[in-house]
Each structure stands twice: as structure tokens, then as C-alpha cells.
Design a protein around this nucleic acid. Sequence first.
DNA 1: CTGTTAGCGCATTCAA
DNA 2: TTGAATGCGCTAACAG
Lengths: 328, 328
Amino acid sequence: MTNIRDIAAEAGVSVATASRALTGKGRVSAATVERVRAIAQRHRFQPNEIARSLSSGRSHSLGLLVPDITNPFFPELMAGAESAAKARGQTILLTAALGADSAREDLSVLRARGVDGFIVVGNPFDSAEQLREAAGSRPLVVVDRSESVTDLSTVVTDHVEGAALAVRHLIELGHTRIAHISGPPGLDVTDLRVAGYERELRAAGLEPRVVDGDFTVESGAAAVRALLDGPAAPSAITTANDLAAIGAMNAVLARGGSVPGDLSIVGYDDIVLAALVHPGLTTVAQDIGELGARAVEELERQLTGDTDVRTVSLSTSLVERGTTGRAS
Amino acid sequence: MTNIRDIAAEAGVSVATASRALTGKGRVSAATVERVRAIAQRHRFQPNEIARSLSSGRSHSLGLLVPDITNPFFPELMAGAESAAKARGQTILLTAALGADSAREDLSVLRARGVDGFIVVGNPFDSAEQLREAAGSRPLVVVDRSESVTDLSTVVTDHVEGAALAVRHLIELGHTRIAHISGPPGLDVTDLRVAGYERELRAAGLEPRVVDGDFTVESGAAAVRALLDGPAAPSAITTANDLAAIGAMNAVLARGGSVPGDLSIVGYDDIVLAALVHPGLTTVAQDIGELGARAVEELERQLTGDTDVRTVSLSTSLVERGTTGRAS
DNA sequence: CTGTTAGCGCATTCAA
DNA sequence: TTGAATGCGCTAACAG
């Protein structure tokens, strides 16, 4: 590997000057800059980032912690983060951790690797305080958690409005018995979406009805079975996420029912999968990749010295596909 | 941040001894090892990996290059690689690059970051030689390419046998007009699966029929439309991957047909999504996560000095779900 | 504008 | 078994 000493030697300057010419920091004559860079280019010189990190204290790498890589929501977010990071010369160090213990450990590993900051999707801990401590005073952006982390920068979508959007769509289609399959109770995202659902339903003079789920396909299926077998079965449902919606849809189809004939279904997230099932899932779309990209931007902002705590809120929209129809 | 000097000072030993006690390399008395480690633990000392890398020349990090993070196949593989790496104290540096140019650039960035080796999924270049050059003499394991990279360690599944498995299943169900929707022609994976398909079909005295696709949902849909609109429409198809199979299935359903009533469909890969569509997709399963995990293992083996070029071949199996039925 | 001098935090010689 | 010295490759302060 050719290093900066080789370049400096060939250019007939000191290593320090070569460094300045290459990084653009510090005053160097235009002539030497050009000469040094030309030589570097010819040698395909790539500064050793490890050495650079050790010396400068910045690694140009970002730690990304996601809860569950097999849930298709997260890869989409990762993709957005990865490409935004790449565009800014940053590299993503990826880690997936489900529980608080492994999250603590993983963050610690990433810290030892010198990441400049963290993007944490969801909060694996019980409190924002624990999360901040695990991040070890490094800049931190939380994605998709709002209420519980008021003193940290976050990137979120407007869950209340999104949930309301779904309900409004069903009401416009003439539905009056609209149930909601929620996420795990207590979670911000869950509560906000439930709140939006209830608000919009009550505004129309209708009675809310919430069945708890946990974002999984299975929970969606189980919830819908309970709903359809119970009294006053709904003609439409909104769900906490697309996975649950798909589970619900499969459960209806599995018992010979039809969607949207027997039940209209609205998902939430608009993961890629939503467009691939048949019929296509009507869902509340959030730009998942953008969520990741904006998190990178926010982190970058903090890394450049801006210490404001900010909440970036992205809008949502309804994507109509085939799982919703007029009430009969 | 507390560093090794602090630990050494508190233990009353030199930094060198502290380092030896912590890493376990070199002779140190059991007593001092214990003392140093106790102090380190009390301080929650985490050696700075950056410094360690610079000094030792090893970073304990692996570069993972995937072509397309939004194709659900790759996140599953990433998850397997990530957890295997974590279990071995390695960290994954992730990058996604579609074309050869960006792949070259990305590998270069990862190299500058000091990754100890690479796992490359597919070969973004025209030849194994270019890939090796882009990896810059660092150990390299290729996943899912076999033919074109005979002189590199690879982890693959037996595509020929997998494709044959699918055909055999359809033949057992009584189908005789069985078409195959392939991947992009020229790709190893494509050609091998086509070969397996043709071999098995010919063995049964049946005539093969291949329509080219490109692994996307759309290509599957287009191919199946062409097939059904043409003469001698098949009663069953095998596909190069699950995404194409799902596209095919949706195309049939979209025109009012039924699956498997009008067309039996077998996918390939068994991505998570395969179980989530309705009806569930019958498919040739490969353990995608295992593919990633084994790649990490192979790389690790090379990193520990074993320079044998090896090909790890994982087996496949048929998962019967709802998209295949008896020929009418 | 440029060169010299010091580290960054650790691993690894070489002596003792 | 331990310590002192050296260097990984680079950036950053300080002189000139």
C-alpha cells in the first residue's frame, strides 16, 4: 500500500504539507495542491482511514442499530441510510439487536470502533436516559420514537395523522364498523396510531374498537379471526403495520372470505411487500428510505456542531390498492 | 474515555504488560493478569479498536458487499452474516452497490477502512480477476457465484439440484407442460437453474421451454402473460426466484385465473415473503441466512491463515405450500 | 505557505 | 515475567 509518505516524497514536500494538500484543510499553495493531488491520483492513493481516525478523532462512520433485520421495514430504512451516508462520505456500521442487553453491548462495540454517532431505530431500552448512556455521550438520532425521547433528536412520521388518514378513507367508502389491530400496547408508535384511529372515528360519531397485536403476520391473523368470529364483526380494519395487515388478509382468504368483499383492510408503512401481495394492499405510506436518509442528515448536522435537539417529522399519504372497497 | 494507560497506571505495571494481560498474548504472570483485568472491568475499559487496528494491522471487521438491499433476499443473507460475525467478534461494514463502477469504489472505501476481508454477494464485475483486483489482495469469499470464480472461495447452493427438485415435484403432480422463467441469461445462477430444469425435464421425456426473466416481480408477470397467451400454454412453471414467481402468480390472479387451478407455480429461494403471499408459495428453499453465516466462517478461516480455496455447497429442499396442485 | 515536532492508543519488538 | 522503546499512518499544533 502506498502511503502519504510516499506521496510526499515524490512531490518533494513534507508529509504535513501533503496531508494539507489532500484534505484541503490549512493553507497550501495552489501549485503544490495540484502537484500532490496529481501524484496521489496517479498512485490511486487512498488515505488509511484507520490512521486518519486515530489522529483526528473522527472516523466518518455511523453506527446503525436496528431491532430486527428480518422485518422488511428495517432493510428499507437501512438502504436509505446507507446511500445517504455514502453520499456524505460516511460508512455505516450495522448491528442488529433485539433486547436491551445485546443493544447495550452492540453500542459499546461500535463505540470502541469509533463511530462518530449513532442512529437507533426504536428504543431498545426502557428510557431515553439508558439509551443516551449506552451511546456514551456520542451524538444520537432516534428514528421512529417520539414521545419517550423528547430530549433527543428524532426522525418520525406523523402517526396520528397517518392513522386518521386510513380511517377517513374507510369512512368515505361508507364503512361504519371499523376496527383497529394495534401494535404492542405501550409503544409510542402503537399509542399514536391508536390515538389517530380513535380521534377520527369519534369525529365521525363511530365507536372505536381496538384489538392488540404485535406487528407480526401471525398477530394480524389471530386478531382478525377473533374479530370476525365475535359479535358485530367489522366491515373494515386498519392495522398498525403492513405485516399485520397481510396476516389479516391471509386469514380472511384462508377461511374462504374475500378481500375487500368481506373485509376492507388498510395497512401501514407501505413496505415493498405491500405492492406484491394480491390484491395489493391499500396502506398508509411513509417514505421508509427517507426516514433513514433524514436520520443520517440529522446526525451529520449534530456532528458539525449544531447541538439543537430537533424533531424531523415526515408526512404520510394513503396509497390505494386493492384491499379496500365500498361498504355493502 | 479511560485508556490502557490509565489501567496500567492503576495496576502499577507498564502499558505493555497491561496490553499483554488484556489480550492474552505474551507471557504474563497469572497474578498480574487477574489484577489488570479486574481493574479494566471495573472501569468498563474498552480498548480503542481504531488504535488496535492501526497497530496490529487487523481490524476485526469484514466488508460485506451486496448488489441490492431492497431485494428481500439480501437482507436475509445480511442478517445471517451479521450474527455470525458478531458471534466471532467481528463487525460488518455494509455497502450496497449495483454496478461495477460503484462496487469498485465501495470496495476501495472499505479497504481504506481496513476491513480484514470481503464477502461479496454475486460478482458485480465481468470476471473474477477484476473482483480480486478490486479487493486488493485481501481475503475474499464470494457468495452465490460458482462457475465464474473457480479460483476463489465460494459459498453456494446446488442450483442444478434445486431446480431439478422443483421439476420433479411438478412431474409427480402429473404436469407435462412445464415452463421455466429464468434469470438474466449468462449469469451462473440462471444457467445452472436452467440446466437443472432441462435435465430433469428431459429425463422424463418432456420438452423444456424457457422464457427469460431478470429476477424481478415484473419480469415474472410479463413472462407468464407471454406464456399463457401463446400456443400450448403450460400447466405449471418453475421460476428462477421467488420474486418472479410472485409476479407470475399475481399476473394469473389479475386476469381472473386461479393458482394453482390454472397454473402451478414453484419459486426459488424461500424468502420470508414466500410464506406471506396467499396462497403460500411452493418453493425451493435454500437457507439464506446460513449462506451469509458460512461465508463469514469461510472468510474467518482464510484470515487465520488457511489459504485453501474452498467451495462450500449448501443443500436445498422443496417447501410445499399452496401454489402447486395436481394437473387436471 | 511550509517544515518540524508531537501525539492519537495500542501492539510489539528488544532488552533486561 | 516485565519495562522501555518503536512504530502503525495520519493530523494538528507550533514555528519559521
